[in-house]
Design a protein around this nucleic acid. Structure first.
Length: 819
RNA sequence: GCGAGAAUGGCGGAAUUGGUAGACGCGCUAGUCUUAGGAACUAGUAUUCGGAAGGAUGUGGGGGUUCGAGUCCCCCUUCUCGCACCA
């Protein structure tokens, strides 16, 4: 009979739900493990292969831990605010709240079919006041500490999403993280969270967490810490100064001109009359340039002379001040000292505009390049001459401090997190503006500031909340006078930066989360999600966690101790997406093979972190495996019921077949435990297939006790990967209690692993010439005779001079000959 | 341009510290059973020479270290990802 997956999967899902098998007792800290996948965005489309690929294997890891006796907490929820629902509303008129709730209903049903051990009592969604109230609370805590502030700044504006974006949300060559549209710059007043206050700690903390190296490198680069100095340059004939940041203070003597970013506030002021038109034209031109044009490294350098001069503080000489688009207002001070001798960009610029070049580092002999950025002795630099770069930097920095011309300075690439969004479907920012008192935070006891249902969704750039008079107009909590609410909402990454704490008790009303549980259950032991969040969600969450720690609300420094990225499943080489129409729908496979087979096939496809191109070619292989496994178990119905189960066998007393089975099953217990633990699901499945091949060959010849011993292990190993089937088989073997209600995991019998004979390969000059089956641990002297008795070995060594013999016990016997 | 990773049969992919390359699965070939099978089972399956025994070649390309290299070192090619004038 074919494995009736449909009935069986339904039967166990119902049983698990009825028994609350996966309800975690969070007060029990003993052997606690918090497993988390990034929560799901409830879009209108169905769960696709990517979701299954993310959630299924992660759940198998959690199930392994559960069977091993850990108290595992694995929740699931909905990242329910966000643009797509709102865009859908603009298109169809269906309110985001209605469509979101509807989608959540569908997705919940689909998630349940996967058969993951989610603790459904911990389910949460971010779009309800019970949740977003605490986003507002979090904002106010930061506000109190001066970490939430408003400023006018050049911000990234996505014309398609009609909203501003944080720096992290601008990708590649300047396109919007969500829609890929080219982002524009606008000068607007917006709310920021001061993530830069934590820059150093965010950087240092990376050393303490078990994350993929490339993700840590990305964050490191994103934070972009660099050591250098700030140097003040007097402007010729003016009172004000220009401050630059440089990582190479040692090259100051070679600074032959300066460059300001076109957006630099002093540009217009210092430009001489004759050059003003050119400068303004250039500024206009830069403004209209796309980010691609401006950031292209290969393009010719452009710029305009302001006509103003600054004084090089080291040489006392007048140097010209230019503006150029290669200097960015958002990095450093928006101004640089140009040292063409030691900087490639400056060299290119100097060449372009015929500006002087002075080398201040001796180039090595035979150097034919242009700018020289490596180490070497200083030249043309008076008191620095002869010093290597490191020492020259130090000496120059000291000199600058002494003369009051500058100071050592650490600079970061990391910018503050812009959280205002000119959109409706998000958390209202709990700030109001009073005519008398000005910017006023909403008192905590008046939270939540509820998102009104009735607004107009227009795709025209204004915040939709502005259209609801009842929302906008309010009274000032300080003076009672009329006030207006902030009509922007928060970036949804605020929601996801602390949700893992809310899971611990989503109904908690006394605070954002139960701090007692928060302290017990963080950091999260295993976090699994896409690599695309490397510098957004995963950075924000670390920041917020550290902030909460400083508030005394959690104890640990990092939220996610161990992180794994699932690979991407592509289709015909392309990322699956609705717009490309290449999304593979899992439903058909679930229908045909069941969810256990489908998730096991996803695991079997290849290394979890690599992903791969979708193909259904091999799924029949996994299905056959499951069918055979089921048949073997059925043939041995109730085998665990009769008599006491043996925990260990004396290998010496076993028949050859039993010995073979006994060894294989113990090897498999060891292998599967290790591989699943390390997210190597493909090899875990392969190991189980190997065991099954062994069972097909030899199980019939085994004693009943051995059959019970073996099948008990086979089924428990199978259970994390194919949970419904594991339970069913466990029951067929004669167990009354469910496997996940009464977790069982078997220890390896080390003696069962011991092999008594090994194949030793005999090589002559590194080529395999014979294979000998020998008892283990034979000494060379004992093996030698056998080796040289082998016909093929004789044929290859005869009449040749033996130079050397290498023997590695139980492995290899290599003979080196000459002639 | 810089940084990281990858390249193994017809295909997806295995391979502790260097020690039998190709586990496991798909596909394919032959056979068994069957009214039939795109079912199930059994055997085979890197390439190549050979009737066989056995030999030669083989982990993107080239060099090196070693008794021995998919694995370590150097150079190159291709692909994927990330960053992109960061001062």
């Amino acid at each position: 009979m074919k494995y009736p997956f449909k009935e069986i999967e339904e039967k166990w899902r119902k049983r698990w739900e009825d028994n609350k098998t996966y309800k975690t007792d969070l007060t029990e800290k003993e052997k606690a493990i918090y497993t988390l996948v990034m929560f799901i965005y409830p879009s209108g489309s169905k769960l696709h292969c990517g979701h299954w690929y993310n959630y299924g294997p992660t759940d198998s890891w959690a199930r392994l831990k559960k069977l091993q006796g850990y108290n595992v907490f694995e929740p699931m929820g909905y990242d329910a605010f966000g643009l797509p629902a709102e865009n859908y509303a603009i298109k169809t008129g269906v309110h985001p709240q209605d469509s979101t709730f509807e989608n959540i209903k569908d997705i919940r049903a689909q998630l349940k079919k996967m058969g993951c051990m989610y603790d459904w009592d911990a389910e949460l969604m971010t779009c309800v006041p019970e949740y977003y109230k605490w986003n507002q609370w979090l904002f106010l805590q930061m506000y109190k500490k001066g970490l939430a502030y408003r400023k006018k700044a050049p911000v990234n504006w996505c014309p398609d999403c009609q909203t501003v974006l944080a720096n992290e949300q601008v990708h590649g060559e300047g396109e919007c993280e969500r829609c890929g549209t080219m982002v524009e710059q606008k000068n607007l007043t917006q709310w920021f969270l001061k993530i830069t206050d934590y820059a150093d700690e965010l950087l240092d903390g990376l050393k303490t967490i078990d994350w993929p190296e490339k993700t840590k490198v990305m964050q490191e680069h994103w934070i972009g810490k660099s050591y250098g100095a700030e140097v003040k340059f007097k402007l010729d004939g003016r009172e004000d100064e220009l401050t630059v940041f440089t990582t190479r203070p040692d090259t100051l003597f070679g600074a032959t001109y300066m460059v300001l970013s076109p957006e630099h506030p002093l540009v217009e002021e210092i430009t001489i009359k004759e050059n003003l038109t050119a400068v303004q034209e250039y500024k206009e031109k830069v403004k209209s340039l796309s980010e691609i044009d401006r950031s292209s490294t290969s393009k010719e350098k452009t710029g305009v002379n302001t006509g103003a001069f600054a004084i090089n503080p080291a040489t006392g000489k007048k140097i010209p001040v230019w503006i150029a688009d290669y200097v960015l207002m958002t990095y450093g001070t928006g101004a640089i000292m140009a040292v063409p001798g030691q900087d490639e960009r400056d060299w290119a610029f100097a060449e372009q505009f015929d500006l002087p070049i002075i080398r201040t580092v001796q180039v090595p002999e035979g150097w034919e390049g242009k700018a020289y950025t490596e180490d070497g002795p200083a030249i043309n630099s008076e008191f620095l001459n002869g010093l290597r770069v490191q020492d020259a930097k130090k000496k120059m920095s000291d000199w600058l401090v002494e003369k009051g011309l500058g100071e050592s300075k650490v600079n970061f690439r990391l910018r503050d997190w812009l959280i205002s969004r000119q959109r409706y479907w998000g958390t209202p920012i709990p700030i109001l503006y009073c005519e008398k008192c000005g910017e006023t935070p909403v008192p905590e006891d008046q939270l939540p500031v509820e998102l009104p249902y009735k607004v107009e969704f227009k795709h025209d750039g204004g915040s939709p909340l502005a259209s609801n008079e009842g929302f906008v107009n309010t009274t000032c909590p300080t003076c009672g006078g009329p006030a207006k609410r902030d009509v922007d909402t928060m970036d949804t990454f605020v929601d996801s930066s602390w949700y893992y704490l809310r899971y611990l008790n989503p109904k908690f009303i006394e605070g954002a989360f139960d701090t007692e549980l928060g302290k017990r259950w963080t950091p999260i032991d295993m976090y699994v999600g896409g690599a695309e969040h490397a510098t957004m969600h995963l950075l924000y969450a670390r920041f917020v966690h550290k902030f909460l720690r400083d508030q005394g609300l959690v104890d640990c420094d990092e939220p996610f101790k161990r992180l794994i990225h699932q690979g991407t499943i592509t289709n015909a080489g392309a990322k699956m997406s609705k717009s490309k129409g290449n999304v593979v729908n899992p439903d058909g496979f679930i229908e045909e093979y069941g969810s256990d087979v489908f998730r096991m096939y996803l695991m079997f496809m290849g290394p979890y972190e690599l992903g791969g191109d979708w193909s259904d070619k091999g799924i029949v292989g996994v299905d056959r495996f499951v069918q055979r496994a089921y048949a073997i178990v059925k043939d041995n119905k109730n085998v665990m019921k009769h008599g006491r189960l043996k925990e260990k066998f004396e290998v010496a007393e076993l028949s050859d077949e039993e010995k073979s089975v006994y060894r294989k099953v113990n090897q498999t217990v060891e292998k599967v435990s290790y591989e699943v633990e390390h997210f190597h699901f493909n090899t875990a499945v392969a190991a189980l297939m190997e065991l099954q091949n062994e069972l097909a060959k030899n199980l019939e010849e085994c004693s009943k006790e051995m059959k019970a011993y073996t099948l008990a292990r086979f089924v428990t190993l199978l259970a994390p990967l194919a949970p419904h089937m594991g339970e069913e088989c466990w029951q067929i073997l004669g167990n009354e209690k469910g496997l996940y209600d009464n977790p069982v995991w078997f220890e390896v019998d080390a003696e069962g692993l011991v092999v008594d004979s090994v194949t030793v390969v005999v090589q002559v000059n590194g080529k395999v010439r014979a294979k000998l089956d020998l008892p283990v641990d034979k000494e060379q002297a004992e093996v030698k005779g056998l080796v040289f008795a082998n016909d093929n070995v004789i044929a290859h060594t005869e009449s040749k001079e033996i130079i050397k013999e290498i023997y590695i016990k139980n492995k290899i016997y290599n003979i080196v000959v000459k002639g």
